[in-house]
Design a protein around this nucleic acid. Sequence first.
DNA 1: GTCTATATTGTGATAGAC
DNA 2: GTCTATCACAATATAGAC
Lengths: 202, 202
Amino acid sequence: MTQKDLNTEQKILKAARVVFTHKGFEGARMQEIADEAGINKALLHYYYRNKDKLFEEVFKEAFYTMVPQVIELLKSDMPLFDKIRFFAEKYIDIFIQNPFIPGFVLHELSQNPKRIVDLISNLGIEPQIFLQQIQTEIEKGAIKPIDPRNLLTNLLAMCIFPFVAKPILKNIMFTKDDKAFTLFVEERKKSVPEFIINAIKK
Amino acid sequence: MTQKDLNTEQKILKAARVVFTHKGFEGARMQEIADEAGINKALLHYYYRNKDKLFEEVFKEAFYTMVPQVIELLKSDMPLFDKIRFFAEKYIDIFIQNPFIPGFVLHELSQNPKRIVDLISNLGIEPQIFLQQIQTEIEKGAIKPIDPRNLLTNLLAMCIFPFVAKPILKNIMFTKDDKAFTLFVEERKKSVPEFIINAIKK
DNA sequence: GTCTATATTGTGATAGAC
DNA sequence: GTCTATCACAATATAGAC
């Protein structure tokens, strides 16, 4: 599936995205990326020195898709419940459009946890403002007491997990076709924030 | 770290567990498994014909650890809230003791989703009873209405996700050492069921 | 820039001595 | 059963023609 309107470098990156996110670094083959791009193996090395460099591009892109944008959102001055609704909807949407990103990023990070240290310190990813906002609401008596880190973890878990566990969920839930699963996840854009708000509201 | 009181076959399996669960099938090297077992590469092939066979042993074991036992638990006739508490506590405990199992199983399943079809149909994993129990509670008016599949998904997500996303969570939550993370997860054995029950109780 | 051909290294697997 | 040595092939990477 090559695009005639992309230059070679773009075609390679696009193909690499597909193969790396599906197979991971170790599972990916340079030959498969070349095939997917409709070009020759040697060209991969012409544009990107080696497999590592090509992977690095794809991984960074995927990480940016998954983490910083949305953490930024948590820093806004929106009221807590609105923020939770907005976050879940936007985040789940990102994954509906990029269903392989979560598994890919999480797997590669656990293969090489040092990687994240650089990325995170470069980007200044700090959910402190969100955690503080939760703490403030608790102190005001506006919501039930909860460890704010637990609330954030639960929010992330409910948004991300279905995409990481898709094969199990699809089978266990008896929604064996993809359309039913997509519907199920689509519906979670509303039900996840509702669930969370029910859990913490007084 | 070889154990003097294990026979060779056991040493191999133990080593394979470590290497496969950490690196995945594609990332694992037979040489590394041999080193970890303190034996020779050729012996791996003597006891297990090839890499696939050895992997199959490890994967099946890991899958059994992660899925069937605990699904069984969902079938008991315990009251819903107790069941949720019991499930979360037991499930999170399993992962505290086997922190690499979730990432390993989920990753390998998405590499090869066909694998699960066999395993699941062989084992008769059906959470129908649990889903039905939730539905009954809703109809009795005992809990808030919710798609039972969403409730199960959320329960699984909150138990499993922290172990899959450990590197990110550790960094983002500023609990950069392992002890703090373990404490955080330990504490979730109580807070996760509490969170869920708060979300659904009337 | 793009290709074919080839070098080089890595890795699973086997042969055969002990 | 366990080892050393080696094979066979797969995969990354490079050389060099066009």
